[in-house]
């Protein structure tokens, strides 16, 4: 087997591989890095795309925009369910899920007892 079975040599091996891959990635990025280009006002306006101009003063993307594509595009349905159906912040909405879990436990107990009463 390629990867040694004991955890220490396995971890050393995997660490070396990861180090190698990181180095490779770094070199690739350095080589492919584009030359710094000046940005004109027009290009800046096109970049804005409806955002408030104040975001230009920020030197980096805010963390709330970090996973925009995941939250609003790829898993849109899942997140709508999670936020609007489940984590609404209202105790009454939580209670449905909590009682469902209690009822499952009790129902299983009743089923198990019912089987033993029948047999």
């Amino acid at each position: 087997m390629l990867i040694a079975s004991d955890p220490i040599s396995a971890s050393i091996l995997i660490s070396l591989v990861m180090l190698y891959l990181t180095l490779l990635l770094y070199i690739v990025i350095r080589v492919l890095k584009p030359k710094h280009s000046e940005s004109s006002d027009e290009s800046r306006e096109m970049y804005l795309g409806g955002e408030h101009p104040s975001i230009l003063s920020k030197p980096h993307v805010l963390q709330s925009g970090l996973y925009w594509a995941i939250v609003f595009r790829d898993f849109k349905k899942a997140y709508r369910g999670l936020v609007e159906k489940m984590h609404t912040g209202r105790v009454i909405d939580w209670a449905y899920y909590m009682t469902a879990w209690l009822l499952i436990l009790l129902l299983l107990a009743i089923i198990a007892l019912g089987i033993s009463a029948l047999v």
């Binding site: 984590h87 939580w94 899920y97 909590m98 469902a100 879990w101 209690l102 436990l105 009790l106 299983l108 107990a109 198990a112 007892l113 033993s116």
Partner: peptide, 27 residues
């Protein structure tokens, strides 16, 4: 004994999954 154990464990599990924040009791 059997039905008592089953009922008691059903309640206990619900209680301690709330305390330990398992999924439907995690809010």
């Amino acid at each position: 004994v059997t039905s008592a154990s089953l009922a008691a464990i059903a309640f206990t599990l619900w209680v301690f999954t709330f305390k330990s924040a398992l999924f439907p009791n995690h809010f």
